[in-house]
Design a protein around this nucleic acid. Structure first.
Length: 294
DNA sequence: ATGCCCCCGAAACGGGGA
């Protein structure tokens, strides 16, 4: 079985390239991130015409994750248990000369406050079982800046995913789980074209790197590095400043798997050619080849 | 070579991305 993950940066803008990739690579299961659409906007027909079923979660033009499979897709979950939400920071308090709220609220109806309303869970994780493998398509929050609330959200999100994923590794050594996607963490200095360019930024802080490596101590193995250990092996290149021709990239797309999946993997390919040409995503597919189960 | 940012929705710019 061929299992791939790809941050496509808008599935509607790139559906032809995605379908062409599926057919060219003969991928059986594709985890997709950043679809940037609501469920009813997802181009399901093109995938079905190519022989794939699709499970998707998307609430707006932001985020959005999916799994396309031609080997079955079952038990879909559109978030993981305990997945934190993100609340936009509260608007600044009104100026002193702003008109006061009219005191006409019904006394027996307490006004809703931010503290009482849980922040919305974003479309960043989708789980489904495909040919016996529990696949999670993951789009880890970016973080934006270390002093931004989005950064604390990113760490909380990774921590909650870790706790959930640790529970998925039960005592059965046959349990097949794959956590794949855009992790938005640069685990090593050799995973970035120039570490100095990221000094003081997100993706490289010790807290983010610790949150990432914690999955290994929980019993998962990051199998893309296991099979492709070369330094400066990138999965993302910015659109700006000729980053791709100059090979100024980042390695931020990874696959943590349970031992039973790890032992099936015969090879990993990063489809660097997919970054070429007009209409490319800024990320490329990362492909895992799995032998038939023992 | 691969090539000088791109996507979205709302509005004709601004937010988000990494």
């Amino acid at each position: 079985m061929r299992l791939a993950t790809w941050n496509v940066n808008s599935v509607r803008a790139r559906v032809d390239r995605v379908i062409a990739f599926l057919e060219r690579s003969q991928t059986d299961v594709l985890a997709i991130q950043e679809t940037k659409c609501r469920d009813e906007q997802f181009p399901v027909a093109a995938f079905e015409a190519a022989g794939y079923e699709v499970a998707h979660v998307g609430h707006s033009a932001w985020n959005g994750v999916a799994i396309a499979s031609r080997v079955g897709i079952a038990d879909v979950e559109t978030s993981f248990p305990g997945q934190p939400g993100f609340a936009k920071p509260a608007a600044p308090a009104p100026a002193d000369d702003a008109p006061a709220e009219a005191p006409d609220a019904s006394p027996d109806e307490a006004p809703a406050t931010l503290l009482e309303v849980p922040p919305p869970v974003e479309a960043r994780a989708l789980g489904a079982t495909c040919a016996g493998v529990r696949v999670w398509s993951l789009y880890v929050p970016h973080g934006r800046a270390v002093d931004d609330p989005h950064y604390a959200y990113k760490l909380a999100w990774l921590g909650a995913l870790h706790d959930a994923a640790a529970g998925w590794l039960d005592d059965d050594p046959r349990t097949q789980v794959a956590l794949v996607g855009d992790w938005n963490v640069i685990p090593l200095d050799t995973d970035v074209y120039d570490p100095a360019a990221f000094a003081g930024h997100t993706h490289v802080t010790p807290a983010e790197r610790q949150a990432f490596t914690a999955f290994a101590t929980a019993g998962y193995t990051e199998v893309t590095r296991e099979h492709l250990p070369a330094e400066h092996t990138y999965t993302y290149w910015d659109y700006q400043q000729l980053a791709f021709p100059r090979n100024k990239g980042l390695r931020i797309d990874f696959a943590y798997t349970s031992p039973a999946v790890r032992e099936r993997i015969t090879g990993v390919v990063i489809d660097r050619d997919e970054r070429k040409g007009k209409g490319a995503s800024d990320h490329v597919p990362v492909i895992l080849d799995l032998a038939d189960p023992a």
